[in-house]
Protein backbone atom coordinates (compact mmCIF):
# COMPACT_ATOMS: atom_id res chain seq x y z
CA UNK A 1 0.00 0.00 0.00
CA UNK A 2 2.68 2.49 0.99
CA UNK A 3 4.78 1.60 -2.09
CA UNK A 4 1.77 2.31 -4.18
CA UNK A 5 1.20 5.70 -2.53
CA UNK A 6 4.86 6.60 -2.82
CA UNK A 7 4.90 5.78 -6.52
CA UNK A 8 1.67 7.66 -7.10
CA UNK A 9 2.90 10.84 -5.43
CA UNK A 10 6.21 10.82 -7.26
CA UNK A 11 4.24 10.12 -10.44
CA UNK A 12 1.98 13.06 -9.65
CA UNK A 13 4.90 15.42 -9.19
CA UNK A 14 6.55 14.19 -12.39
CA UNK A 15 3.17 14.58 -14.06
CA UNK A 16 2.85 18.16 -12.80
CA UNK A 17 6.20 18.96 -14.37
CA UNK A 18 5.07 17.35 -17.65
CA UNK A 19 1.91 19.42 -17.41
CA UNK A 20 3.94 22.62 -16.95
CA UNK A 21 6.11 21.80 -19.96
CA UNK A 22 3.11 20.81 -22.06
CA UNK A 23 1.27 23.99 -21.07
CA UNK A 24 4.20 26.01 -22.45
CA UNK A 25 3.77 24.27 -25.80
CA UNK A 26 0.01 24.79 -25.83
CA UNK A 27 0.16 28.50 -24.92
CA UNK A 28 2.39 29.18 -27.90
CA UNK A 29 0.54 26.82 -30.21
CA UNK A 30 -2.81 28.44 -29.50
CA UNK A 31 -1.56 31.96 -30.09
CA UNK A 32 0.41 31.34 -33.28
CA UNK A 33 -0.03 27.70 -34.44
CA UNK A 34 3.73 27.26 -33.91
CA UNK A 35 5.02 24.17 -32.13
CA UNK A 36 8.05 25.47 -30.26
CA UNK A 37 10.84 22.91 -30.42
CA UNK A 38 13.16 25.27 -28.52
CA UNK A 39 11.08 24.83 -25.36
CA UNK A 40 13.39 22.23 -23.85
CA UNK A 41 16.34 24.60 -24.10
CA UNK A 42 14.38 27.37 -22.37
CA UNK A 43 13.78 24.87 -19.59
CA UNK A 44 17.48 24.08 -19.30
CA UNK A 45 18.31 27.79 -19.37
CA UNK A 46 15.92 28.42 -16.46
CA UNK A 47 17.53 25.68 -14.38
CA UNK A 48 21.07 26.95 -15.06
CA UNK A 49 20.09 30.57 -14.39
CA UNK A 50 18.65 29.48 -11.04
CA UNK A 51 21.88 27.71 -10.09
CA UNK A 52 24.01 30.71 -11.03
CA UNK A 53 21.77 33.19 -9.23
CA UNK A 54 21.76 31.10 -6.06
CA UNK A 55 25.51 30.75 -6.40
CA UNK A 56 25.76 34.55 -6.53
CA UNK A 57 24.35 34.67 -2.99
CA UNK A 58 20.75 35.72 -3.65
CA UNK A 59 18.13 34.33 -1.25
CA UNK A 60 16.32 31.31 -2.69
CA UNK A 61 12.96 32.98 -3.30
CA UNK A 62 14.48 36.02 -4.99
CA UNK A 63 16.68 33.82 -7.16
CA UNK A 64 13.62 31.79 -8.17
CA UNK A 65 11.71 34.90 -9.26
CA UNK A 66 14.75 36.32 -11.07
CA UNK A 67 15.39 33.04 -12.93
CA UNK A 68 11.75 32.86 -14.02
CA UNK A 69 11.75 36.43 -15.30
CA UNK A 70 15.11 36.00 -17.06
CA UNK A 71 13.87 32.92 -18.91
CA UNK A 72 10.63 34.68 -19.80
CA UNK A 73 12.59 37.63 -21.20
CA UNK A 74 14.82 35.28 -23.18
CA UNK A 75 11.74 33.62 -24.69
CA UNK A 76 10.24 37.02 -25.54
CA UNK A 77 13.53 38.06 -27.15
CA UNK A 78 13.57 34.90 -29.28
CA UNK A 79 10.04 35.69 -30.40
CA UNK A 80 10.92 39.31 -31.25
CA UNK A 81 14.15 38.52 -33.11
CA UNK A 82 13.36 35.31 -34.96
CA UNK A 83 9.65 34.53 -34.90
CA UNK A 84 8.16 37.98 -35.52
CA UNK A 85 9.74 38.36 -39.00
CA UNK A 86 8.28 34.93 -39.90
CA UNK A 87 4.64 36.01 -39.42
CA UNK A 88 2.71 35.32 -42.60
CA UNK A 89 5.31 32.84 -43.84
CA UNK A 90 4.54 29.08 -44.03
CA UNK A 91 4.08 27.77 -40.48
CA UNK A 92 6.03 24.62 -41.33
CA UNK A 93 9.18 26.69 -41.95
CA UNK A 94 8.65 28.61 -38.69
CA UNK A 95 8.49 25.34 -36.76
CA UNK A 96 11.75 24.21 -38.35
CA UNK A 97 13.33 27.55 -37.39
CA UNK A 98 12.44 26.92 -33.72
CA UNK A 99 14.37 23.63 -33.90
CA UNK A 100 17.49 25.56 -34.92
CA UNK A 101 16.88 28.30 -32.36
CA UNK A 102 16.90 25.46 -29.84
CA UNK A 103 20.17 24.20 -31.23
CA UNK A 104 21.73 27.70 -30.94
CA UNK A 105 20.49 27.99 -27.34
CA UNK A 106 21.88 24.55 -26.48
CA UNK A 107 25.31 25.52 -27.82
CA UNK A 108 25.22 28.81 -25.90
CA UNK A 109 24.21 27.03 -22.67
CA UNK A 110 26.96 24.49 -23.19
CA UNK A 111 29.54 27.23 -23.79
CA UNK A 112 28.37 29.31 -20.84
CA UNK A 113 27.96 26.57 -18.21
CA UNK A 114 30.04 23.69 -19.50
CA UNK A 115 29.35 19.96 -19.39
CA UNK A 116 29.52 19.29 -15.63
CA UNK A 117 26.45 18.00 -13.76
CA UNK A 118 25.23 20.20 -10.91
CA UNK A 119 22.72 19.80 -8.11
CA UNK A 120 19.83 22.23 -7.83
CA UNK A 121 20.00 24.29 -4.58
CA UNK A 122 16.98 23.88 -2.31
CA UNK A 123 15.98 25.87 0.80
CA UNK A 124 15.49 22.58 2.69
CA UNK A 125 17.82 19.61 2.96
CA UNK A 126 17.46 17.74 -0.36
CA UNK A 127 16.83 14.45 1.43
CA UNK A 128 14.07 15.74 3.76
CA UNK A 129 11.08 13.44 3.77
CA UNK A 130 7.49 14.02 4.77
CA UNK A 131 5.37 11.24 6.23
CA UNK A 132 1.88 10.94 4.78
CA UNK A 133 -0.34 7.99 5.67
CA UNK A 134 2.58 5.72 6.41
CA UNK A 135 4.56 6.49 3.26
CA UNK A 136 7.65 8.69 3.35
CA UNK A 137 7.70 11.13 0.48
CA UNK A 138 10.54 13.35 -0.68
CA UNK A 139 10.02 16.99 0.26
CA UNK A 140 11.25 17.91 -3.24
CA UNK A 141 8.52 16.03 -5.01
CA UNK A 142 5.83 17.43 -2.72
CA UNK A 143 7.16 20.95 -3.39
CA UNK A 144 7.11 20.34 -7.15
CA UNK A 145 3.50 19.24 -6.86
CA UNK A 146 2.56 22.37 -4.86
CA UNK A 147 4.41 24.84 -7.08
CA UNK A 148 3.06 23.26 -10.24
CA UNK A 149 -0.52 23.33 -8.98
CA UNK A 150 -0.15 26.99 -7.91
CA UNK A 151 1.30 28.00 -11.29
CA UNK A 152 -1.45 26.21 -13.18
CA UNK A 153 -4.14 27.88 -11.06
CA UNK A 154 -2.54 31.29 -11.62
CA UNK A 155 -2.44 30.66 -15.37
CA UNK A 156 -6.11 29.75 -15.57
CA UNK A 157 -7.02 32.85 -13.52
CA UNK A 158 -4.93 35.00 -15.87
CA UNK A 159 -6.53 33.60 -18.99
CA UNK A 160 -10.09 33.77 -17.68
CA UNK A 161 -10.12 36.94 -15.58
CA UNK A 162 -7.67 39.51 -16.97
CA UNK A 163 -7.64 41.81 -19.99
CA UNK A 164 -4.41 40.22 -21.20
CA UNK A 165 -6.02 36.79 -20.99
CA UNK A 166 -8.96 37.94 -23.09
CA UNK A 167 -6.58 39.47 -25.65
CA UNK A 168 -4.65 36.19 -25.78
CA UNK A 169 -7.79 34.20 -26.36
CA UNK A 170 -8.90 36.62 -29.07
CA UNK A 171 -5.52 36.38 -30.83
CA UNK A 172 -5.64 32.62 -30.60
CA UNK A 173 -9.05 32.41 -32.21
CA UNK A 174 -8.42 34.83 -35.10
CA UNK A 175 -5.37 37.04 -35.55
CA UNK A 176 -6.78 39.31 -38.25
CA UNK A 177 -10.02 40.02 -36.43
CA UNK A 178 -8.07 40.65 -33.24
CA UNK A 179 -5.92 43.19 -35.08
CA UNK A 180 -9.02 44.86 -36.53
CA UNK A 181 -10.46 45.17 -33.01
CA UNK A 182 -7.35 47.05 -31.85
CA UNK A 183 -5.59 44.26 -30.00
CA UNK A 184 -1.80 44.65 -30.30
CA UNK A 185 -1.18 41.16 -31.66
CA UNK A 186 2.61 41.56 -31.66
CA UNK A 187 2.67 42.45 -27.97
CA UNK A 188 0.27 39.61 -27.17
CA UNK A 189 2.70 37.22 -28.88
CA UNK A 190 5.54 38.60 -26.77
CA UNK A 191 3.44 38.12 -23.62
CA UNK A 192 2.58 34.55 -24.68
CA UNK A 193 6.23 33.67 -25.16
CA UNK A 194 7.11 35.33 -21.86
CA UNK A 195 4.53 33.12 -20.13
CA UNK A 196 5.79 30.01 -21.88
CA UNK A 197 9.31 30.92 -20.72
CA UNK A 198 8.06 31.22 -17.12
CA UNK A 199 6.49 27.76 -17.27
CA UNK A 200 9.60 26.30 -18.85
CA UNK A 201 11.88 27.74 -16.16
CA UNK A 202 9.60 26.57 -13.34
CA UNK A 203 9.50 23.07 -14.78
CA UNK A 204 13.27 23.08 -15.26
CA UNK A 205 13.98 24.17 -11.71
CA UNK A 206 11.75 21.57 -10.08
CA UNK A 207 12.85 18.88 -12.50
CA UNK A 208 16.46 19.66 -11.56
CA UNK A 209 15.53 19.18 -7.90
CA UNK A 210 13.63 15.98 -7.88
CA UNK A 211 14.16 13.21 -10.38
CA UNK A 212 17.53 14.31 -11.75
CA UNK A 213 20.41 16.76 -11.65
CA UNK A 214 21.06 19.68 -13.96
CA UNK A 215 23.24 19.19 -17.02
CA UNK A 216 23.05 20.33 -20.63
CA UNK A 217 20.88 17.34 -21.54
CA UNK A 218 18.07 18.54 -19.28
CA UNK A 219 16.37 20.09 -22.32
CA UNK A 220 15.69 16.66 -23.82
CA UNK A 221 13.06 16.09 -21.12
CA UNK A 222 10.75 18.26 -23.20
CA UNK A 223 10.58 15.33 -25.64
CA UNK A 224 9.01 13.25 -22.91
CA UNK A 225 6.22 15.82 -22.59
CA UNK A 226 5.16 15.56 -26.25
CA UNK A 227 2.71 12.69 -25.62
CA UNK A 228 0.98 14.82 -22.98
CA UNK A 229 0.48 17.64 -25.49
CA UNK A 230 -0.84 15.26 -28.11
CA UNK A 231 -3.05 13.13 -25.87
CA UNK A 232 -4.53 16.25 -24.31
CA UNK A 233 -5.18 17.82 -27.70
CA UNK A 234 -2.79 20.39 -29.15
CA UNK A 235 -4.97 23.41 -28.47
CA UNK A 236 -6.54 22.49 -25.16
CA UNK A 237 -4.87 23.79 -21.98
CA UNK A 238 -7.06 21.71 -19.64
CA UNK A 239 -6.54 18.60 -21.72
CA UNK A 240 -2.77 18.79 -21.65
CA UNK A 241 -2.65 19.41 -17.90
CA UNK A 242 -4.84 16.38 -17.31
CA UNK A 243 -2.90 14.24 -19.80
CA UNK A 244 0.44 15.40 -18.38
CA UNK A 245 -0.47 14.38 -14.84
CA UNK A 246 -1.97 11.07 -16.02
CA UNK A 247 1.02 10.15 -18.15
CA UNK A 248 3.44 11.07 -15.34
CA UNK A 249 1.63 8.74 -12.95
CA UNK A 250 1.37 6.01 -15.60
CA UNK A 251 5.09 6.30 -16.36
CA UNK A 252 6.15 5.89 -12.74
CA UNK A 253 3.65 3.07 -12.11
CA UNK A 254 4.88 1.34 -15.28
CA UNK A 255 8.45 1.62 -14.03
CA UNK A 256 7.40 0.08 -10.73
CA UNK A 257 4.98 -2.62 -11.82
CA UNK A 258 5.38 -3.42 -15.55
CA UNK A 259 9.11 -3.17 -16.33
CA UNK A 260 10.17 -6.11 -14.10
CA UNK A 261 7.86 -8.51 -15.95
CA UNK A 262 9.13 -7.77 -19.45
CA UNK A 263 12.67 -9.11 -19.06
CA UNK A 264 15.23 -7.63 -21.44
CA UNK A 265 12.53 -5.68 -23.30
CA UNK A 266 11.43 -4.06 -20.05
CA UNK A 267 14.68 -2.22 -19.37
CA UNK A 268 13.88 1.50 -19.68
CA UNK A 269 10.48 0.54 -21.10
CA UNK A 270 8.84 3.24 -18.95
CA UNK A 271 10.64 5.89 -21.05
CA UNK A 272 8.76 4.88 -24.21
CA UNK A 273 5.58 3.86 -22.42
CA UNK A 274 3.90 7.31 -22.73
CA UNK A 275 4.48 7.09 -26.48
CA UNK A 276 2.85 3.67 -26.64
CA UNK A 277 -0.14 5.04 -24.74
CA UNK A 278 -0.24 8.03 -27.08
CA UNK A 279 -0.20 5.94 -30.26
CA UNK A 280 -2.94 3.62 -28.99
CA UNK A 281 -4.96 6.60 -27.83
CA UNK A 282 -4.71 8.42 -31.16
CA UNK A 283 -6.05 5.39 -33.00
CA UNK A 284 -9.26 5.89 -31.04
CA UNK A 285 -9.35 9.70 -30.84
CA UNK A 286 -7.23 11.38 -33.56
CA UNK A 287 -7.59 14.88 -32.08
CA UNK A 288 -6.68 13.96 -28.53
CA UNK A 289 -8.87 14.29 -25.45
CA UNK A 290 -10.13 17.84 -25.90
CA UNK A 291 -8.52 18.99 -29.18
CA UNK A 292 -10.73 20.86 -31.61
CA UNK A 293 -12.02 18.73 -34.41
CA UNK A 294 -11.42 20.71 -37.59
CA UNK A 295 -14.42 21.36 -39.78
CA UNK A 296 -13.21 21.22 -43.35
CA UNK A 297 -14.40 23.36 -46.18
CA UNK A 298 -13.10 23.22 -49.69
Amino acid sequence: MSTWLQLTVSGLSLGTIYALIALGFVVIYRASAVFNFAHGELLAFGAFAMISLCGAGLPWGVALAAALVATGLLAAAVERLVLRPMIGRPVFVTIIVTIFVGSVLRSVIFIAWGPQTRGMPTPWDPLTTVDVAGASLLMNSVAALGAGAAALAAFFLLVRRTKLGVAMRATASDQETALALGIPVGRVFAATWFLAGLFAALAGIFLGMFPRNVDTNLGFVALRAFPAVIVGGLDSAWGTVLAGVLLGVLEVLCQGYVNPYLGEFGRNFHAVFPYVVMILFLIVKPHGLFGTREVERV
Binding site: F35, P227, V272, Y275, M278, L282, P286, H287
Partner: peptide
Protein backbone atom coordinates in the same frame (compact mmCIF):
# COMPACT_ATOMS: atom_id res chain seq x y z
CA UNK B 1 -5.07 8.25 -42.84
CA UNK B 2 -6.60 9.58 -39.64
CA UNK B 3 -3.94 11.93 -38.26
CA UNK B 4 -2.57 15.04 -39.79
CA UNK B 5 0.07 17.69 -39.28
CA UNK B 6 1.74 17.78 -35.90
CA UNK B 7 -0.24 14.84 -34.53
CA UNK B 8 1.31 12.64 -37.21
CA UNK B 9 4.74 14.19 -36.63
CA UNK B 10 4.66 13.25 -32.94
CA UNK B 11 3.40 9.74 -33.72
CA UNK B 12 6.34 9.21 -36.08
CA UNK B 13 8.58 10.49 -33.29
CA UNK B 14 7.04 7.78 -31.11
CA UNK B 15 7.87 5.22 -33.82
CA UNK B 16 11.48 6.44 -33.69
CA UNK B 17 11.67 5.93 -29.90
CA UNK B 18 10.04 2.51 -30.18
CA UNK B 19 12.46 1.43 -32.93
CA UNK B 20 15.44 2.53 -30.89
CA UNK B 21 14.06 0.75 -27.81
Amino acid sequence: LRLRGLYLAIVTLGILFLTSH
